[in-house]
Design a protein around this nucleic acid. Structure first.
Lengths: 203, 203
DNA sequence: GGTTAACTTGACCCGATGGTTAAGTTAACC
DNA sequence: GGTTAACTTAACCATCGGGTCAAGTTAACC
């Protein structure tokens, strides 16, 4: 069972083109999207909607009109935020022939994404299960770790007692620390990634 | 510089005996303390005070009357919750002669405490700096890791690039994951402690 | 058992946030 | 340029949590 690496229902065209938006509504959608991306980057997916609305120059109610609520807004921008990169990271890892290198590449790239986009941790945690895109990312990420760890065990390149859950737990822990603590210097962060990778090798 | 292993101002006698409490007030203090300990154990140090008051059978205002607020309440019960155990853990580690065993013992005991008492993570994070006891625990814990890592490096029993900050970061990350994710089975948790300890050894 | 100071508390106020709606505004089309 | 449906929004309600206070209650002491 190799994991899915593309989103189930890619709705880049936010509105599904059921009915064309009026000019002012379309303009607002664009402004809200831009504001949401910036806000989610800076403060996480739990940024107050009122703040996003203010940044977009509209009223809070307009976000509800256009996106239905937070989950809809997340669905509309998560692709730009993390989904695209996440699926690229998974594809890249799947193409690495050496089982250990596949794991190392995947873990390194994923931690890098986590460092640059804290919102990715929200995806892992399924903080907003109402967002289909978010749930899809979480599922795909979990499938991916299961697959990679299986490959690693078959090839004997990771310690026997290491499980996919261990990897998931470690990534979530790292993401939570990134949000609560002052962001570590990149060199410290990278060093800790090396520690973690080293701890996976057979003894 | 060996770390302090006892609290600066041990105020087990909550009231400092400035003036004896009236009978009803003393009874309420006892009930609030018991309720707070249970609540802090179950939900963390950010449990709404109103909930603690209800469990104690008093009004929210009484907590403010008796303890001044959340920080005071934490100060009054943190000893029972984690301070006593934490200082015991530090003393125990300081008495282990072998530098590596000292680190292993300390990390293992501390993670065990973290598993049993999630409130300990709040101490590490200094979520409530107004609580003197909490701040003292955090400071002592940090001093302790610095001292242990220094000893480890002097004896060459841990990898050269490992720092005390790395240990702090890992412990905080672990504590946050413990609170956000469903609590892992003890055997999984212990295995992850072993992974972590293994990752500290020289390469 | 009466006086008083200690004590408790319901009822507030506040700010933050999610969510809804009536009423007004505006783009689009004839 | 008039009609209308789409659209926006200020105003509103609700919840939650911290924090305060006037007014009532009660323990303690004479």
């Amino acid at each position: 069972m190799s994991p899915r690496t593309s989103p189930p229902g890619d709705r880049e065209a936010a509105q599904v083109a059921g009915a064309p938006l009026r000019a002012d509504a379309a303009r607002n959608v664009a402004q809200i999207r831009a504001a949401a991306i910036a806000a989610f980057r800076g403060r996480g997916l739990d940024t107050p909607l009122e703040e996003i609305a203010a940044a977009a120059g509209v009223s809070k109610a307009t976000i509800y009109n256009r996106f239905g609520g937070r989950a809809g807004l997340i669905d509309a921008v998560i692709g730009k935020l993390v989904a695209a990169e996440m699926y690229a990271i998974m594809d890249k890892a799947l193409q690495v022939a050496d089982p250990w290198q596949a794991i190392a590449t995947y873990v390194t790239d994923r931690r890098d994404l986590q460092y640059r986009e804290p919102a990715f941790t929200d995806a892992l945690l399924m903080t907003y299960p109402d967002s289909g895109q978010l749930a899809a990312i979480a599922t795909a990420a979990i499938d991916m770790t299961i697959s990679l760890v299986q490959r690693g065990h078959d090839a004997g390149v990771i310690r026997r007692d290491f499980t996919a859950e261990d990897l998931y737990y470690a990534d979530v822990a790292n993401g939570l620390a990134l949000r609560k603590l002052p962001r570590p210097a990149r060199q410290d962060y990278d060093r800790r990634i090396r520690f973690f990778l080293d701890s996976l090798r057979p003894r």
